[in-house]
Design a protein around this nucleic acid. Sequence first.
DNA 1: ATGGTTGTTTAACAA
Length: 283
Amino acid sequence: MSEAPSPYVETDPLPKPARGALRLVTWNINSVRLRLALVAKLVAQARPDILCLQETKCPDDQFPHDGLAELGFTHRYAHGMKSYNGVAILSRVPIAEPAPLHHCGREDCRHASAELPGGIALHNVYVPAGGDVPDPAANDKFKHKLDFVAAQTAVWKKRGRKGPAILVGDLNIAPCETDVWSHKQLLDVVSHTPVEVAALGGMREAGGWVDVARARHPEPQRLYTWWSYRNGDWRKSDRGRRLDHIWVTLDLAPKIKAFHILRGARDWTQPSDHVPVAIDFAP
DNA sequence: ATGGTTGTTTAACAA
């Protein structure tokens, strides 16, 4: 059985999307103001038509609209706050009805939606990281993470079958055994605990979502999108996790033309600890 | 080996 070619992209520019296809990239940028130059680098390498950012760490009145407009993103929606979290949708093609969504009785800037050409609903989500202790009774941050995923599950269950949709973002959970560098060693580590994996599976099934990465690159192919800053040589130790996801509704799955993980971005100057993940799709 | 690094904001958090 032949394995699909690796989705990892190092430094070469990505090939252009097929005719009529749009390129959508999701990236936890870990401060949009600090890394505006890296957005320019991403644009040069990948030319995204739509770019979803997480962890912008930027209040809306300080969002770098001018610099992003200069990079060709004529349509921009920022939903951020001071210091923490924050999501943004940037686009070269028109987006309709951009809006924030709130969960768990908080307004902590973790979810934005918009409508793409072709009537595709786009959701950009930043799931709470969850702190260090994987016990909701002992750790409020972990409880918030589970509550947030449960709230998402309820949203998608309620939505039902209602047209094409794409969900992207830093979901902060690596669901498969080969989504982490060591399944056994991470069973007790927040991001890969069985309770989180089960919760994320429930969220995915509630929306009928297809996990594009795994649809195209099934296990046991290893797929990572995040490498900790704490490992000196990330490439040598390769202790990665697949925390960043692109999900699509079943009707869109056949319209996905390409999938890439821009692993080379982890070596850019002053990098994010997450790398961009891309799909090309024909709406 | 119970560390390690980074960003925001200014010593402590969060990731």
